[in-house]
Design a protein around this nucleic acid. Structure first.
Lengths: 266, 266
DNA sequence: GCGATCGGTTCATTATTTGAACCATTGGTT
DNA sequence: AACCAATGGTTCAAATAATGAACCGATCGC
């Protein structure tokens, strides 16, 4: 691994759950020498990628990202496009819609939209982390990822978020062909109890899967009618999002077919 | 310069004006060897900090920034705080309010708010770059920056954006004491003709100047009454922003005094 | 078909990175 | 108050990774 990669990988240890990290702890997490981590952090800090916070001298992500994210978004307005689509999708389904992007071996939430049709909604947050094995979005991404990547992911310990989380690699592999046939993944209670999530993958210009768009609803509210409505609208908006972003679904991706209660299967 | 710094500095060549850069061009811009740049870009690309775009194989900023910016914003909601303050400021003054952060030797715009009081407004954009010598915000920052930084900035060629831009280092230095006395900088037509900009510096927890909040108005609309209103409201909201962000003005920073037409001077 | 680009690669030389051991501080425990 | 175990940070010889001139193959304009 190059020095630059080491420096950049340090950034990946910052998360919602661990927003500030001390020097020694970061050295432990990354397996690098403390002196090395210190030098890398100093260089990162010089460029505003991290900064030190008050007393404990811990480090946190720096202000440079605001500028660079704004530039990125100006060039490729993924978030803006996603928000438009999600707002429509959420309005049409009456449920929470969200979109997440693949970031290493995990999905991170990019944007979301709530509906005000019901008193209760599945809640979401920006930059929330979604695991590939326990969420509908993750399964959708796995189904359209290279075999080597799937092997890599499934070879690691799969944490059971709920009693319904699939943790056997074989069980998860068995789902993928069906997801590929339908162009959509469904996960019931895999990440949070009582939440059912439908997800459709999003592709880039090289037809690589870069993330997923999903609708998350309380299990208690799910009916055949709602399911069909969600499937139909989700398929439309996910495909549209891929297209607007300049991406192309792979040749094997099933074309859109209007979903009616009669057309149901599986 | 360490390897990491070289890699990170490559990112700084991407801008609104130059959103995509080819390998050879980036090598030329940075003065590094083409092979070196290629290796650094490959490492950056591995982590999603840059990506290659279609035909020309040029590079642009990658999707990783969206996630990291969201995390940063979650931890230190500068943008959110700024937007609230700017919206109020813009409403109270009837003019465009914006806030920019120091990024190396230049300010980059973080957020802005328009008023709908008038048919014409000074326009702004996110991630827009403001030079230190030609803008009100830049002068405010210079006035509260270390002497060595000021020397560094003023030793470089100062581009004349308009016929009214100050390009003589001595002229600019002469302004700084008055700015420090008032806690506010004013620039008329320095960046764009017919725009007058009032700016107040923003400070962090160590009382270092990290950027500026400003109100930009058409010169044609400027009256004594508007000027006093802008000064008063800008002082209030800039100080409030510093405070909310956990920062402290330096001891030398003048305390807020209500601005009335009678209290005017220079 | 030529010349001048481009992105990308190679490999001996070189300079940077590395890490064990070392401070100075801090905070909790005996 | 003495002690221990943390912390962030520093040092410098040894080891490793970065470097860059020259080289491909492809593309473009003429």
């Amino acid at each position: 691994m190059g020095t630059t990669s080491k420096a950049l990988s340090l950034l990946s240890y910052f998360s919602r759950a661990m927003p500030r990290i001390g020097l020694s702890e970061l050295a432990r997490l990354s397996g690098l020498n403390k002196a090395t981590v210190h030098r890398l952090l100093s260089e990162l800090a010089e460029h505003g990628f991290v900064e030190q916070v008050g007393a404990g001298r811990e480090y946190r992500l720096g202000p440079a990202f605001l500028r660079l994210a704004a530039l990125r978004e100006k060039q490729v307005p993924v978030r803006e496009v996603a928000l438009q689509q999600l707002t429509e999708l959420s309005n049409k389904t009456g449920e929470t819609a969200h979109m997440s992007l693949l970031n290493g071996d995990v999905l991170s939430n990019l944007a979301y939209a709530y509906s005000n049709r019901h008193g209760t909604m599945v809640m979401m947050e920006d930059a929330e982390v979604l695991e590939l094995h326990s969420t509908g979005s993750g399964l959708a991404v796995l189904a359209y990822s290279p075999a080597s990547f799937v092997d890599e992911i499934l070879s690691r310990p799969l944490i059971a978020r709920t009693s319904q989380t699939l943790t056997d690699p074989a069980d998860i592999r068995a789902l993928l062909p069906a997801i590929r046939r339908q162009g959509m993944a469904v996960s019931t209670g895999g990440f949070e109890e009582d939440v059912i999530s439908h997800a459709v993958p999003i592709f880039d210009a090289r037809s690589a899967c870069i993330g997923a768009m999903a609708v998350a609803a309380p299990v208690s509210r799910m009916t055949d009618a709602l399911r069909h409505n969600i499937c139909d609208k989700l398929m439309v908006h996910a495909r549209q999002t891929t297209r607007i972003l300049g991406g192309f679904p792979p040749d094997t991706f099933p074309p859109y077919q209007p979903q009616t209660p009669l057309a149901e299967e599986a």
